[in-house]
Amino acid sequence: MDRIKAAVIGYGNIGVCAFDALKESGDMEVAGIVVKPKYLDKLQRELPDYPVVDSIDKLSKVDVALLCIPSVLVPEEAAKILQKGINTVDSYDIHGENLVNMVKRLDSIAKEKGSVSISGAGWDPGTDSMVRAIFEIMAPKGITYTNFGPGMSMGHTVEAKKTPGVKKALSLTVPKGLGFHKRLVYVELAGDARFDAVEKAIKENPYFKKDETHVIPVEDVDRLMDNGHGVLMERKGVAGKTHNQQMEYRLKITNPAVTAQVMVCAARAAMKQKPGSYVPLEIPLIDYLPGDRWEIINRLV
């Protein structure tokens, strides 16, 4: 059976981990890496055995593209690649209506071009949404609380870095309990930037404005960096008419590694779906796994 040819779009924290995960997957291979022109020479020297290009059009054969880029760039990039008839997988992490509306827009493109898109394929909203669904299957009535952290939020860190006057940034998510969080944003200021202006801009950013946010100036952000993260999900609900069903799911992970691994498994699943746009919750779990159907069932059921 031919291996699935996957391109890595972007080579930051997630892109590097996606590259590693693909190399560890027996049924997949790296079709190439797509980066901005300014990174080409350096990466071509570092990875001489793999095609490194500045456009996916320069790769010979791509079945699926892993969009390892900031979430705000995903809608446009996914649409362009789906138009080429290439499947896409992203880890879009802006929850709620933003994700739903993007999936709806991409669905019409994917169906027209015979391609497949899977959006939000990280650990949250990706695999965490599957666990939330399992909780509701077991206890249809009740409340699920999702508590993130403590740990580095990649999406929030990217947004903080984009703030005018910020040289480097790190955004930590700290759980307060019952699904509430606060953000600790450590910033290294650029030049003569004013801290009060930077603080105001970060707190007004849609990524931060809904949560309690503390912006803290530091001399060296790199000394604080740690890609660890986690989640604690709790549900208390009702099964049938029986109350007090309590469930708990806890995760402690290295954020980009697990995000990338889920994306690689979603790339495999994308090859098994009908044309259209999906979120991970909609796809049969068995489609994410390599191997024979009956062997998987025998091992896991």
Rank of each mutant, 00 (worst) to 15 (best):
E159I: 01
I143D: 06
N147W: 05
G151M: 01
H156G: 14
P140I: 07
Y145M: 10
G142D: 07
K141W: 02
G165E: 08
T163M: 15
M154I: 12
K162Y: 13
G149T: 03
P140N: 06
M154W: 06
L170D: 02
M154R: 06
G155M: 07
T173P: 01
G149L: 05
V166E: 07
K176W: 13
K167W: 13
E159C: 01
N147G: 05
K162W: 10
G177P: 05
K176D: 14
V166N: 07
F148A: 11
A160P: 07
H156A: 15
P164G: 04
G165F: 08
V166W: 06
V174K: 03
S153R: 00
H156K: 15
G177N: 10
A160D: 15
V174E: 08
K161F: 01
P140V: 08
G177L: 08
P150D: 13
H156W: 03
G165A: 02
K168W: 05
P140R: 14
L178V: 09
I143C: 04
G177W: 10
S171T: 08
T144R: 10
K161W: 03
L178P: 01
S153D: 14
Y145C: 13
V166I: 06
T157A: 00
P140K: 10
T157C: 05
G142K: 03
K176R: 15
K168S: 09
H156N: 12
E136I: 02
G165R: 09
K167F: 14
M154S: 06
K161T: 12
T173H: 00
T144P: 09
M154F: 09
K167C: 11
E136N: 12
T163E: 12
F148C: 06
L178C: 07
T163Q: 11
G165S: 04
V174A: 04
K161R: 12
G149P: 04
G142H: 05
M138Y: 13
K161A: 10
P164V: 10
G151K: 00
G165M: 07
L178G: 08
A160N: 12
V174D: 00
P175M: 14
T144A: 11
V174R: 02
L172G: 02
T163A: 13
T144M: 06
L170I: 06
P175A: 13
S171D: 03
A139R: 14
I137D: 14
G177C: 10
V174W: 02
G155R: 12
K141M: 13
T173Y: 02
A169M: 03
S171R: 01
G165K: 05
G151A: 05
V174N: 01
V158A: 09
A160C: 12
P150S: 09
T173C: 02
P150I: 06
S171Q: 03
Y145K: 15
